[in-house]
């Protein structure tokens, strides 16, 4: 499989404070990568930098996506290349219904003029999978949704927009076990339907990895990848905690 995303020596700051210090990572087409790490280790800085949040400034390094240097591309241009970010804290847009939001997004992304009837059919199918009540279609996006509903709504958008690279920032936080299973199954279904799509999944917990099988696991520590490995690394972390890795780092130094 060919390289989809290549990151070299990435340094990023926000509010004049450097958060990422020379990160390197490459993801191939179809791979699932998992990023774990403590709060404040730079995971969200990383996901937002990938998606082009204007507050995060790249000081040095390069992000190459599908052979394109995307350092200076705006978020919507990245989305048009096939990137998607499932937000850790999805934003509400009052007055904009879920159905209109997704329909308009499909239109701007793909110029698709899918008929309203076909669109609804597809939307309802995906909502069924996520056990989202149809009444949500006409509710304002994320307005008054619970944490779990917001997370499912992100997955719903992912499956409707069909990106080729999905970044999921803690899709499992705040979910009960049943919701977690639903979200994980939807991600797996989506992956089955689009095997070439790559996923970068940020999580705190090993739990979601009972359902989703990653190719690689990376552990963030102080704004860089401290260790990378296979799924066994996540299990090890679960058992021994981040301290273990921190100590290991110190002993190497």
């Amino acid at each position: 499989m060919s390289e989809l995303l290549t990151i070299k020596d990435l340094h990023v700051e926000i509010d004049k404070k450097e958060i990422l210090h020379g990160l390197n990572l490459s993801i191939k087409e179809g791979e699932i990568h998992v990023v774990m790490g403590r709060n404040g280790s730079g995971k969200s800085t990383f996901t937002n930098t990938l998606m082009g949040h204007p507050a995060y400034k790249i000081l040095k390094g390069q992000i190459n996506f599908k052979g394109v240097d995307i350092n200076n591309l705006k978020s919507n241009e990245r989305a048009k290349l096939g990137m998607f970010l499932g937000f850790q804290y999805p934003i509400s847009i009052p007055g904009v219904t879920v159905v209109n939001f997704i329909r308009q997004a499909i239109k701007v992304l793909k110029g698709d003029n899918i008929s309203p009837k076909d669109f609804r059919k597809r939307l309802y199918e995906k909502m069924d999978l996520l056990e989202i009540d149809y009444s949500f279609a006409t509710r304002y996006i994320n307005e008054g949704f619970s944490g779990g509903e917001k997370k499912r709504m992100e997955i719903l958008q992912m499956s409707m927009l069909e990106p080729c690279f999905v970044i999921l920032d803690e899709p499992d936080s705040g979910l009960d076990i049943d919701s977690l299973k639903l979200v994980a199954e939807s991600i797996n279904n989506f992956k089955k339907q689009f095997p070439k799509t790559s996923i970068l999944l940020v999580t705190h917990y090993q739990r979601i990895l009972d359902y989703i099988k990653p190719d690689k696991v990376h552990v963030f520590l102080d704004g860089n990848i401290a260790d990378s490995g296979g799924p066994e690394l996540a299990l090890e972390l679960e058992k021994r905690g981040y301290d273990w890795l921190e100590k290991a780092q110190v002993s190497v130094l």
Binding site: P54, N76, A79, F84, F87, I93, V108, L161
Partner: peptide, 18 residues
């Protein structure tokens, strides 16, 4: 709200469209 604009732009809307 800048965060609303970012959210919409991450879904493909240009800043004007957002």
């Amino acid at each position: 709200d800048e965060e609303q604009i970012y959210y919409l732009m991450s879904r493909g809307f240009s800043d004007k469209e957002a």
